[in-house]
Design a protein around this nucleic acid. Sequence first.
DNA 1: CTGAAAGCGCTAACAT
DNA 2: ATGTTAGCGCTTTCAG
Lengths: 332, 332
Amino acid sequence: MNPSGRRRTTIKDVAEAAAVGVATASRVLSGTGSASATTRERVLAAAARLDYRPSALGRNLRRQHTGGIGLLLPDITDAFYSRLADGVLACAQSAGEPVMIGITGDDPEREAELIGSLLEQSVERVIAVPCGDGEMWGPAFRAGLGVVFVERRAAGRDDVPTVLADDRSGVRVAVEYLIGLGHRRIAFLARHGQSQRVRAYREALASLGMQVDEELIARAHATRDSAYAAASGLFQHRPDLTAVLAGGNMLGEVAFLAARELDLRVPRDLSLIMFDDVPWAELCSPPLTVISQPPQDMGYRAAELVLRESRRPRTVTLPTELIIRGSCAPRR
Amino acid sequence: MNPSGRRRTTIKDVAEAAAVGVATASRVLSGTGSASATTRERVLAAAARLDYRPSALGRNLRRQHTGGIGLLLPDITDAFYSRLADGVLACAQSAGEPVMIGITGDDPEREAELIGSLLEQSVERVIAVPCGDGEMWGPAFRAGLGVVFVERRAAGRDDVPTVLADDRSGVRVAVEYLIGLGHRRIAFLARHGQSQRVRAYREALASLGMQVDEELIARAHATRDSAYAAASGLFQHRPDLTAVLAGGNMLGEVAFLAARELDLRVPRDLSLIMFDDVPWAELCSPPLTVISQPPQDMGYRAAELVLRESRRPRTVTLPTELIIRGSCAPRR
DNA sequence: CTGAAAGCGCTAACAT
DNA sequence: ATGTTAGCGCTTTCAG
């Protein structure tokens, strides 16, 4: 008896109704093995009549694997991650795989809990934007979980298949563009954990023969408040900066807001480029110049990767593109 | 042997290691029943040492229920729904319940498939933004699923617990505001299925003694393209309108875009109010006047409702609020 | 307080 | 081609 008071229709019921053994019923229902046309007919008819639905629980327990896929994201509210999720779901759903979603809030502890929960559910594939170092992933690998990282890597886990955007190129192109416009004091507004992008920023500057001013790198936690504080602090502390690169759409948003609050006109007083091409980028004024990444593609590819279960580590890098709109101007 | 080649640690292993029976192990591990202090100690120690994780599969199969919750959304990419999801996840995660997410794309057929998949997984609670009529939900109710609807109802399923925003009040306040500014030709840009809001619009107009001009109601499908076409068509077809109410953030976005494309200045030529207070609403210029709904709250409440499993249908309505910014002006 | 055993729904040997 | 049976990991009577 389930909560509704009605027992679930089982394969046994179907077998009985079709007057065959459970094994036979199982065979025709799961498409495995052979059965005579008439038997097949009878079983299918009985199943349809009884509105039979195979229980994934029973099957998974027997087969010792689930086939579901877990998805661990820092923040579903962020336009980039929600589109990433959309890509994953598109692929997973077309493959008929259920996906369990967990929000880490970029907190390694929560991440560890969620991994534990996934393990408990016998999920056997995970797509994750990892936070913290690779530590938390020990149990997952020990349990034989198939994992694919997206958007970033976890420290000490370079062997894990990963889908990345080409940050380095994106940052480099943006920096070159800004320098071409005459800017010399270009700040970078980053979230903690965006070491890849910060490194690319340093490299780009260095390769163009410029000094890296560490004070121009501001770091924020994953919350909007923290980001706003970082942006505002940066602008007030270094009024000499003339351009800023925001490491994500949320960071770009608060940078724009903070600039307005401090009466810095974009792009007259401040040139702004942000990561992620979100729909509102061309709605605000000036329309924002952005480094676009293909979030749905990234999600889709990650899902393909984790589904394919290709044993050897593979990492795929998707291109970024600088979309020039109106938020950058020559230095005055 | 699982794919990784290593067998999962089972309760049997723990029992053996602790030199007790499986029943005893189960009792202390699941907190049920009693055991002597020493036994308890031994079992816990063994479990820790072996890094034991109970299998949800085994437990659920035995107990005949899963405790997971399914979440069916039209589009995770939409800021409103992603925040709704965030609310659901916040509640579910703090209750330790896994959530399976499915994207319907507002397509009844897909919705039906997803319901089927959820049933197969033995999920027993579902939170959904229903699309199409209540038809698709037959199997779910027959199977004894606990379902809660959010944001809208399904036709013919008025008995299902539902979490709604107070559309009627939101629309009425907005319409009154617009009329107070002198507007008389106020259009409504709606998605198919937003009958509730359209009705509220009609009622508001009528209660203020105004005629309802059906031509001023434009309807779009769930895609951005369809929405843009509807908005653009509306503006071109009825250049005499002076204000427009958009039934969602995506509709507001395309309305803004279409207006710009047609050289209609907001708010000089066209006053605009949209549903949903999204972060970019105050970034664009002019900042957008919006009817805000509390998406995370709605999600959280829905999760509470479905978790509580209160048998009697309850529907909760959350308040909306008109946030006046700069996208409306007196009629000229 | 503890253990043996049944059985949840299903599939895969194995037998017929 | 089909039926019988064991058993996946777990909880829960039922005895002791």
